[in-house]
């Protein structure tokens, strides 16, 4: 393990053992629908409340990831998970039945990248043999906490994003598999002064740009060296801004720059600027990117989780939105 600037390079890589994605009805109808391990037919996952539904979804993702790796929960040294709900109840409650040492995370939509970064560091540093990284969000539980009741008729502006009902779980281990985690950059907070919580893409775009810029500096690489640079979730507004910021530096991002918020839903699904929520980047990673890395369709990927770290209280008090972006480098087809 080496550190240069803000980036940690895992000279002895940490490996992705398995992954799983679980999604809701709308996510099942999206372009990645068929690639999920399980789709809940009605978003309730057989539960009475939306919070319980999200917890159930997290349990299912963990179960799928463990069974795909054919390991028992006892083989997991540590689970790292988070979600959007107050006190991260979905992840903590999902851990009730699993009996695995658990560290709760809050990074908003950057939670999966944060979990991968920490999970890989724990293994690389010798503190763990196998870590389980988890991130979930549920449209209905997030709406009632952050915005309005589901049946309220108020409309959102075109820059707003749709919280994904989705969960992703990734198992990392020390022994070699087909996908390696080879580097990670922990992001700094950037607050460009956006106070509109219906425009989170704008609030997070600068963080994504800065983390990528720092990573390219630390690694001595450039955007063209990667098959895929994937932010999540900036959606159309933030994705366009990151492009503009890099173009102004004289090194424009190519077709290899994508955003998870623009991949989860189709254009006809009426999600305005795109998807958001911890589950969005986690599910896109687990349903689409990691399988492509394992199959060798992708070789090098920069997975950059972006989080808007505001709360309804801070928004009501007129505070601007601090953004963060954590980057994880994944290499496949080994």
């Amino acid at each position: 393990m080496r550190r240069r600037g803000d980036t940690v390079f895992f000279d002895e890589p940490v490996w992705v053992e398995s992954c799983a994605a679980v999604g809701g009805k709308k996510e099942g109808e999206g372009p990645l629908g068929a690639r999920f391990d399980e789709i809940g037919p009605d978003n309730r996952f057989g539960q009475k409340t939306w919070e319980k539904a999200e917890k159930r979804m997290a349990e299912l993702a963990c179960t799928h990831a463990l069974s795909k790796a054919d390991v028992s929960p006892a083989a997991v040294t540590c689970a790292l998970g988070g979600d959007l709900l107050n006190q991260c109840i979905s992840s903590a409650f999902a851990m009730r039945g699993l009996g695995v040492p658990y560290l709760g995370l809050y990074g908003a939509c950057s939670t999966m990248a944060e979990g991968l970064l920490l999970g890989a560091a724990l293994i690389s540093g010798g503190f763990a043999d196998r870590t389980l990284c988890l991130a979930s969000s549920h449209f209905c539980s997030a709406e009632r906490q952050y915005r309005y009741p589901l049946e309220y008729g108020g409309q959102r502006p075109p820059s707003a994003q749709w919280t994904a009902t989705a969960c992703g779980a990734v198992l990392l281990r020390r022994e070699k598999t087909k996908i390696a985690v080879t580097a990670a950059t922990a992001g700094r907070i950037y607050d460009p002064g956006v106070t509109d919580s219906a425009n989170m893409g704008a609030a997070m775009a600068q963080s994504a740009y800065e983390t990528l810029r720092i990573y390219f500096r630390d690694s001595g690489t450039s955007p063209g060296d990667y098959d895929l640079i994937l932010t999540g979730d900036l959606a159309t507004v933030g994705h366009g801004l990151v492009r503009q910021l890099f173009a102004a530096d004289g090194r424009p991002l190519g077709e290899n720059y994508r955003d998870c918020g623009m991949l989860l839903y189709g254009p006809e699904q009426d999600v305005h600027a795109g998807a958001s929520g911890c589950g969005c980047s986690a599910a896109v990673l687990c349903a689409d990117v990691l399988p492509a890395l394992a199959a060798g369709r992708l070789k090098t990927v920069l997975f950059c989780g972006t989080g808007a770290l505001m709360s309804p209280t801070s928004a009501n008090q007129g505070e601007s939105i601090p953004g963060i972006c954590h980057l994880v480098r994944l290499e496949g087809g080994r």
Binding site: P157, P158, P192, G193, V194, A202, V237, L241, Q244
Partner: peptide, 12 residues
């Protein structure tokens, strides 16, 4: 930055 993102954000 504000003038950049306001230009990038679609209006209703």
């Amino acid at each position: 930055y504000r003038s950049l993102y306001q230009k990038a954000s679609p209006s209703s």
